[in-house]
Amino acid sequence: MPSDTKARIQAVARELFAEQGVQNTSLRQISDRLGITKPALYYHFASRDDLVRSIVQPMVQDVERFVGTRQPGDARELLDDYFDLIWRHREVIVMVVRELSTLGVLDLGTRMFEWRRQVITLLLGPELTQAQHIRATVALGGMSDCAVEYAHLPLEDVKPTAVEAAAAALGL
């Protein structure tokens, strides 16, 4: 569990990264907003990249656990749980979408495509037609887009419609 100061630094960094992008946010801006010295910030994070990694890592771990421990089963339940997962990490997804250079952190771009392939296999099995694969890409991509586009709304206003639309795209 991160220390209180570390968690506060991450929270302020997420805000600033969302407002102005990762590359346009300096560690000085983060320390100034927190009212701490830059050396105090460096005590917790060696660099901006280290800070970005610390913000992205929990999402990586959650998604890896999701795709690594799920068994094929009820597709609607899987869609429902997948939406909860992406909703929980929507701030990080917004940060990545806003500044695609963030994809370089932890080789995120490659991992995200692999995660999607694994979720599609869990949903529909390993042997898919091209049409099934395209529908699954639309379904999962659409749910991710909803988590980003409607991040400001309550979960209960977004999730039922997003999951239902994903299920419809899959023909469920």
Rank of each mutant, 00 (worst) to 15 (best):
M1H: 10
M1Q: 13
S3P: 06
D4H: 09
R8L: 13
I9Y: 05
I9H: 03
Q10F: 11
A11S: 14
A11Q: 15
A13D: 04
R14T: 04
R14E: 01
E15F: 02
L16V: 02
A18W: 00
A18H: 04
G21L: 01
V22Q: 01
Q23L: 09
N24W: 14
S26Y: 06
S26A: 14
R28S: 11
R28V: 08
R28W: 09
R28L: 09
I30S: 01
S31G: 07
S31V: 06
S31Q: 06
D32P: 07
D32F: 04
R33S: 07
L34G: 01
L34Q: 02
T37Q: 13
T37M: 01
K38W: 09
K38M: 09
A40H: 02
A40Q: 05
Y43E: 14
Y43A: 05
H44P: 00
H44V: 02
F45D: 00
A46I: 09
A46M: 13
S47Q: 11
S47T: 08
D49E: 15
D50M: 08
L51I: 01
V52K: 00
V52R: 01
R53K: 10
R53H: 03
S54C: 12
V56T: 00
V56Q: 01
Q57V: 14
Q57C: 07
Q57G: 03
Q61W: 07
D62Y: 04
D62H: 03
V63Q: 01
E64G: 03
R65T: 15
F66Q: 10
T69H: 04
T69V: 12
P72C: 07
P72D: 07
G73M: 10
G73T: 10
D74P: 12
D74M: 06
D74F: 06
R76L: 14
L78D: 03
D80E: 15
D81V: 10
D81N: 07
F83L: 05
L85C: 05
L85S: 03
L85D: 01
I86A: 05
E91V: 00
E91D: 13
V92I: 07
I93P: 01
I93T: 02
I93V: 11
V94Q: 09
V94A: 09
E99Q: 00
E99V: 02
T102E: 03
T102Y: 02
G104S: 10
G104V: 05
L106M: 10
L108V: 02
G109F: 07
T110A: 11
R111M: 08
M112Q: 13
M112H: 12
F113W: 13
F113V: 13
W115F: 08
R117I: 10
V119T: 02
V119I: 14
V119W: 01
I120K: 05
L123Q: 03
L123N: 02
E127N: 15
E127V: 11
A131C: 09
Q132N: 09
Q132C: 09
H133A: 13
I134E: 14
R135Q: 15
A136S: 14
T137V: 13
T137S: 12
V138E: 11
V138H: 10
A139W: 07
A139N: 10
G141H: 15
G141R: 15
G142F: 11
S144T: 01
S144K: 03
C146Y: 06
E149N: 11
L153C: 08
L155G: 05
L155W: 10
E156W: 08
D157K: 12
V158R: 00
P160E: 05
V163M: 06
E164C: 03
E164M: 09
E164P: 00
A165F: 07
G171W: 06
